[in-house]
Design a protein around this nucleic acid. Structure first.
Lengths: 252, 252
DNA sequence: GAGTGGTCTAGACCACTTG
DNA sequence: AAGTGGTCTAGACCACTCG
């Protein structure tokens, strides 16, 4: 099969074949054409009907498996995942993405935006000098206008780079600013999740009583070159929950 | 290259080639032979030196990439992941696994083990009848003998199957009992994480004051056939943290 | 332009599940 | 025994990065 434009599976012309195929399959699955745990056609049959190699079909299936849309069992077949699984991301989504997925409207209110010295604790997390200048950004995250989280992040900008309040408000998401304005490509983050009691100031901003249990999530974000870019602490009110899908029990 | 025994890459004879290769590479990476972000040989070179196809090398690399041991960048190369990344699992580990990884000794104390009717709330989560019999198992989880979590789980056993206290104590982990004694293969779980205040009884068992913030993690576990097997609530003291690695910002 | 990873193919055989 | 997914190969070409 040609890798050009007018292929049967062409959805997003120009994208790799297996991604186009995955998009097509995903649509069929989401349209409800396959019920929970219903078997899909065999890989060899999919390959024939889409006129691609079996390997390309397998790549598409692996992709959708990661997304929780379907699953394969050796010797049995490939099946549509139940609705409950399909809706859960395997990742801890960013606040904006997560809120949208839940059908809410994300918002933010910038409390503070200033350049500060890293200090020893954060410097060691970001592999910087204690005196290194970092951009500190403190925000309240809103869901449908209601405060649900307090986010305090320390950003290591490239020398000479700046970040204006206006950019943040325009892009809506800090990550979009990093990617689209500063050319920084986040790749992975290391996260730690726990519970803490709300301090008086935090309680005030979040509209809860001091001492209320908060979900705290700390994160170090790495660039594509695996250099630490950001340290961030997020505190969420008890009504907010992180949801994830955990795979395969990875006992291997 | 033959798939038989005496291959150069043979580590775990009988295992797929790409897994043997991955094990070999992993060892080299963990031995410190490659520093943080040091480049590995090109895929074609690895294929030549291990006498396998390039595709097999790529499969091994994908596996290690998922494990956070290395990462590849299009056009640049494949690199050893920094130590901090390497140590973080991409999954929320089970309590026992996680504790061992932190260098601690996991323990448990069974508070309660009885057969109960599901009730409407749990029945709907497990897609069972409200009157369906479930095994309720309430345990305190210990790290180095100190209570760190309270685990309350509801198990749906196959008709006729039983589970004795003795089995649980022998296997050490509920999941080992499920797999090895009952032939149930867990595949995925859906988890929700948040913060709650400790109730008086919980506080007593965990050795904290009532009202102390606890990390609460709820989970529905699915079998390999994607049938719900277990509902579980875990409450952890504030000193306990979940740690994970979040990938690739999955903006695709 | 040279080197790297990313995609794609066609065919072979193995391992597992099911009737 | 038949059907399914899992592994492996050898070779081709594309897309990206960097000196």
């Amino acid at each position: 099969m040609t890798n050009k434009t007018d292929t049967p599976a062409a959805k997003t012309a120009g994208a790799p074949l297996y991604r186009q195929l995955a998009a097509t399959l995903r649509q069929e699955l989401e349209s409800g054409k396959f019920g929970a745990n219903a078997p899909l056609p065999a890989e060899r049959d999919l390959a024939a009907s889409f006129q691609v190699s079996r390997d390309t079909v397998r790549k598409a299936i692996r992709l959708l498996e990661e997304q929780g849309v379907l699953y394969s069992d050796h010797g049995r077949g490939t099946f549509a995942a139940p609705e409950a699984v399909r809706q859960m991301s395997r990742f801890l989504d960013s606040f904006s993405e997560d809120t949208i997925k839940r059908g809410g409207t994300p918002g933010q209110q910038i409390l503070l935006m200033e350049t500060v010295a890293a200090g020893m604790a954060i410097a060691s997390l970001l592999q910087a000098e204690p005196s290194a200048p970092l951009l500190r950004l403190k925000r309240v995250r809103l869901m449908n206008g209601v405060p649900v989280g307090l986010q305090d992040s320390y950003l290591r900008l490239p020398p000479g780079a700046t970040l204006e309040r206006e950019q943040l408000e325009r892009r809506g998401s800090l990550y979009r600013v990093l990617i689209e304005d500063l050319g920084i490509k986040p790749s992975e983050s290391l996260e730690s999740v726990g519970a803490v009691a709300a301090l008086p100031e935090e309680a005030g901003v979040l509209g809860v009583a001091p001492g209320t249990p908060l979900l705290i999530c700390e994160r170090v974000m790495l660039s594509d070159r695996r250099e630490p870019i950001e340290y961030c602490e997020m505190r969420y009110v008890p009504s907010y929950r992180y949801k994830t899908r955990v795979n395969k029990w990875s006992l291997g």
